[in-house]
Design a protein around this nucleic acid. Structure first.
Lengths: 337, 337
DNA sequence: CTGAAAGCGCTAACAA
DNA sequence: TTGTTAGCGCTTTCAG
């Protein structure tokens, strides 16, 4: 173990007081050039690094921002994370990452933990916002932004894309391609706000096109591959063969496609499949996935930028940043007309 | 802003000294039950959380472990990370993540940064170990482990799988399936240790089976999808149509498969393709990828466990943990015999 | 078993 | 411009 060298050592070696040293490292106050140089010299020689812990303790600034995510290994989350990280680095913040596995209990724990760790702000990715958490964060007085699909009803800083509108558009797009019997496989559970909004979008599109709503075409699940596979398989096993399936997540959509393959059908010739998010694999997979593209990276970047502004006490005009989505038409949806 | 409540407040409210409060939160010394309860009561009421910064400052333990990775969004890295995180959480450590984009310069910076942040140990994932970095870490006296494919020559704590043996085995496996003209697409650049080891494995397998080595079948690249696609495309465009392609990374392998598709060939009927790593998508993709499976999660877990042992001053018998790999035979390789 | 006091490494008044 | 000093919130001797 190496003895760690402190500000005192530097001061002694340079023959000045510790405050002077402090001043040169932060250049917070003027210091004579000559002395400054001498101190810098010593710092270089000794390889001294200020202890950020001690510094944080007094300044109450940790240069840490807490990021809570439902699941790091989810590619969707991953791409948002890239945006978050980039901006954090740009402003010299470090990130404390907390994985909640979409567990509400764990989410609260993470929040607590992060607060304890003295983070200066929080970015939270959560499909479904919980009143309790919002309250918790607001009580803590910490600057925070949410990346979510269901933040509309809260008076908080959010970045999102319009979930309902996107669902509507994709459904409408599918109908436009001549599909009528459209399975709707959600990557969210029953009775959540997310589900309600999506279902509303789906139903509205149906209604607009005079197609009757058929509940047996609806499935609830999760974002991962297996969930999509299972749900589609259940449909097929039940003898329900849709013309198209709209799965609200790309990984799950690919799962669905594989289930279709395994049941002996072709995609898109027999059944078209559309996804949501436009994650990397959407382009890697064959057939390339038709999906709703969201500016994932940007969402992360914007959210992070917002908390930093909040930390710095800058004003933000608009609490809700709604980023644009778009339909990306690739190979997994066929034109039936 | 809420006034944060400190140990002093708790002490006053409970009518005891701060040392007593400290004792009950750490239960480091015996405290009368009655008093203990009173203090606990106050803590609950006030929602007091000890400031870890202050604590770390005196104990010199940050409960932080630095993890430096080449690229978080790489699925390979991601799965290792899961193992790392799980173990960290188990032992109550937090993780400070640093992304280097495989840049040697950045790697050194990250290391410095982490050290400054007072991490107690380091886990580093790096394909190619650099003498400088190893030296840096060793000088810092920080407990560290490396997850790497090329750590053999250093006297450091490493977890890895045998790169050369795995390459040999897969090549041999391909040959066993009746392939002779086997393209070898590496996800590493020319003139790296990694490349040399892999090439050695490949050549040895060829030699063992009396197949002549053909340099025009060899390509160098990177781990990502695009790189695999490009390399395969170049081969095909040059009129070189192998019977099989061994790509030393799954994402790149899928890229290669797509290049083959786009050129109008079938996989595996026309060209077999094998990958390396057995990342999640290897099973999601169709045809399912034949690949070398490495216990990614375990590698992360083992590495993390090692640093923690190191931090705790426990002895570790073996500096090199070499984890087993295995050939996973799925659908992307056909039997030609 | 409990309290007083020192001190972790640093910043920020306050004097000089 | 510089040094002295008082903390930041906590743990840990050291007395009692």
């Amino acid at each position: 173990m190496k003895k760690t060298i402190t500000i005192k050592d530097v001061a002694k070696l340079a023959g000045v007081s510790i405050s002077t040293v402090s001043r040169v490292i932060n250049d917070s106050k003027p210091v004579t050039d000559e002395i400054k140089e001498r101190v810098l010299e010593v710092i270089k020689e000794t390889g001294y690094i200020p202890n950020p812990l001690a510094r944080s303790l007094v300044t109450k600034k940790s240069q840490l921002i807490g990021v809570v995510v439902p699941e790091v290994s989810d590619t969707f989350v991953n791409e948002i994370l890239n945006g978050i990280e980039e901006v954090a680095k740009m402003y010299d913040y470090d990130i404390l990452l907390s994985n909640t596995y979409s567990d509400k209990e764990q989410e609260l724990k993470s929040l607590n933990l992060l607060r304890a760790k003295q983070v200066e702000g929080i970015v939270m990715i959560s499909w479904i916002l919980d009143e309790k958490h919002v309250e918790f964060i607001q009580n803590s007085g910490l600057p925070a932004t949410y990346i979510s699909k269901t933040a509309r009803d809260f008076d908080i800083y959010t970045v999102s894309t319009s979930n309902e509108a996107a669902t509507f558009d994709m459904t409408d797009h599918l109908i436009g391609k001549g599909h009528k019997k459209i399975a709707f496989i959600m990557t969210s559970k029953h009775e959540t706000i997310l589900e309600m909004e999506r279902l509303a979008g789906y139903k509205d599109a149906l209604a607009k096109n005079n197609i009757e709503y058929d509940p047996s075409l609806i499935k609830y699940g999760e974002t991962h591959y297996e969930s999509g596979y299972e749900n589609m398989k259940e449909l097929l096993d039940a003898g329900i063969i849709p013309e198209a399936a709209f799965v609200t997540g790309d990984e799950a959509a690919i799962g669905a496609i594989n289930a279709i393959f395994d049941a002996g059908y072709r995609v898109p010739e027999d059944i078209s499949v559309a996804g949501f998010n436009d994650v990397k694999i959407a382009q890697m997979y064959r057939p390339k996935l038709t999906t709703v593209s969201q500016p994932l990276y940007d969402m992360g970047a914007v959210a992070m930028r917002m908390v930093i502004k909040l930390i710095d006490g800058e004003k933000i005009e608009e609490k809700k940043a709604e980023l644009p989505y778009k339909i990306v038409d690739r190979e997994s949806v066929i034109d039936r007309k």
